[in-house]
């Protein structure tokens, strides 16, 4: 399970980075989303993997932390999801505006001039 998830994270991050390095704005946005998925899963996996042990407590009484998943990494990822959503939205609008302003969808606002 750990092996599969880490390979999956690797694929997400690799695809994301490949896209982030591309010249078209849309590619960069998709890349950032994929990168965000990969990184979110990576942070989440820092709390170790556990099935059927959601961090929902009984009301009162002694709590044995060993039988629940780590809530901290989940809380961090929850924040990360929100922030990556916000950045995606922002980049999208910058992309639209830059396209309207420059007439191209190249990240530099102008097509590459090869010598």
């Amino acid at each position: 399970m750990e092996l599969v998830l880490s390979l999956g994270i690797g694929v997400f991050v690799g695809s994301g980075i490949w896209l982030v390095l591309r010249p078209r704005t849309f590619q960069v946005i998709v890349g950032l989303c994929l990168l965000a998925y990969g990184i979110n899963l990576f942070i989440f996996s820092m709390g170790r993997l556990r099935t059927g042990a959601a961090p929902i407590m009984p009301k009162g009484g002694f709590v044995n932390p060993d039988v629940y998943a780590d809530p901290l990494s989940q809380a961090l990822v929850l924040t990360a999801i929100v922030i990556s959503f916000a950045t995606t939205a922002l980049f999208l609008v910058v992309m639209i505006a830059s396209r309207g302003l420059t007439g191209t969808d190249h990240v530099d606002g102008k097509e590459r001039e090869d010598p």
Binding site: E2, S6, L7, V13, G38, L49, L72
Partner: peptide, 25 residues
């Protein structure tokens, strides 16, 4: 991209399989 993907996969795997000690959670 390949290097980054492989790298993060290896790191993730190494951490996930290491035992977790006492933590803030």
């Amino acid at each position: 991209a390949l290097g980054c993907g492989l790298g993060i996969a290896v790191i993730a795997f190494a951490i996930m399989t290491a035992p977790q000690g006492v933590n803030v959670g």
